[in-house]
Lab assay of single mutants.
Amino acid sequence: TRVETATETAWISLVTALHLVLGLSAVLGLLLLRWQFPAHYRRLRHALW
């Protein structure tokens, strides 16, 4: 049971790290898009909202 718990903890930390990385890359990508294509971003936002 001790090994299982350790594996579970490792998986949880791995998944958390993955989610953090994905979230950060998504935010960075959005910022980059907004910085590179302001007109396109505004049009996209206008279409979405």
Rank of each mutant, 00 (worst) to 15 (best):
T9V: 11
S25G: 08
L14K: 07
Q36W: 11
V27T: 07
H46Y: 14
T9D: 08
L28Q: 00
A17W: 14
R2H: 10
P38T: 07
R34G: 09
A6N: 14
L22W: 05
H40S: 13
I12A: 09
L33D: 01
T7L: 10
L48T: 05
G29F: 13
R42K: 12
I12M: 08
A6I: 06
W11F: 10
A6P: 04
E4Y: 07
G23C: 15
R43N: 07
A47I: 06
L18F: 12
R45A: 06
G23L: 15
Q36Y: 11
Y41S: 07
R42S: 11
L22M: 12
L24F: 14
S13I: 06
W11Y: 08
Q36S: 09
H40K: 15
L18T: 06
P38S: 11
W49A: 02
R43Y: 05
E4N: 08
F37E: 01
R34Y: 04
L22S: 06
A26Y: 03
A39H: 14
V21P: 00
Y41V: 12
V21W: 03
A26L: 15
T16M: 10
L20Q: 02
P38Y: 10
T5Q: 00
A6S: 15
W11V: 08
G23S: 08
T5M: 04
T1G: 04
L30P: 03
L18V: 14
L30W: 07
L33I: 10
A6M: 10
A10H: 05
W35E: 03
Y41R: 03
P38G: 10
S13F: 14
A10K: 14
H40L: 09
W11H: 11
T7D: 13
Q36L: 09
W11P: 10
R2Y: 11
H40A: 10
L24P: 03
L24D: 01
V15Q: 08
W11G: 08
H46D: 09
L18K: 04
H46V: 04
E4R: 06
G29Q: 00
Y41D: 02
I12C: 12
S13L: 06
L28F: 11
A26T: 13
L14H: 06
T7C: 02
Y41N: 01
A39W: 07
G29E: 00
E8A: 11
T16F: 15
T9L: 12
P38Q: 07
Q36K: 12
Q36G: 11
A10F: 10
L20E: 00
T5D: 00
T9A: 09
L33G: 02
R42Q: 06
G29I: 13
E4C: 05
I12R: 11
T5A: 01
H19S: 13
L30G: 08
T1M: 15
R2V: 07
V3H: 00
Q36A: 13
W35A: 15
R45P: 00
R42N: 11
V21L: 12
T5N: 00
A10P: 15
Q36C: 09
V21I: 13
V21Y: 04
V27A: 12
L30E: 00
L48G: 01
T9F: 11
T5I: 04
A17I: 11
L24V: 15
P38V: 08
T16D: 00
A47E: 04
H40T: 12
L18N: 01
W49S: 01
L32Y: 12
T16H: 09
H19N: 14
V21T: 12
L31I: 13
R45Y: 05
L28Y: 04
G23D: 00
E8I: 06
L33K: 01
A47R: 09
R2A: 09
T9M: 11
A6D: 10
H19I: 15
L31E: 01
Q36N: 08
L28K: 02
T7W: 08
H19C: 15
L20S: 08
V21F: 15
H40M: 11
V3W: 00
L31A: 14
E8W: 05
H40F: 13
L44T: 04
L22G: 09
V15D: 04
H19F: 13
L30D: 01
R43C: 08
W35V: 11
G23R: 00
G23V: 14
Y41F: 13
L14E: 05
S25Q: 04
L31K: 01
W49K: 05
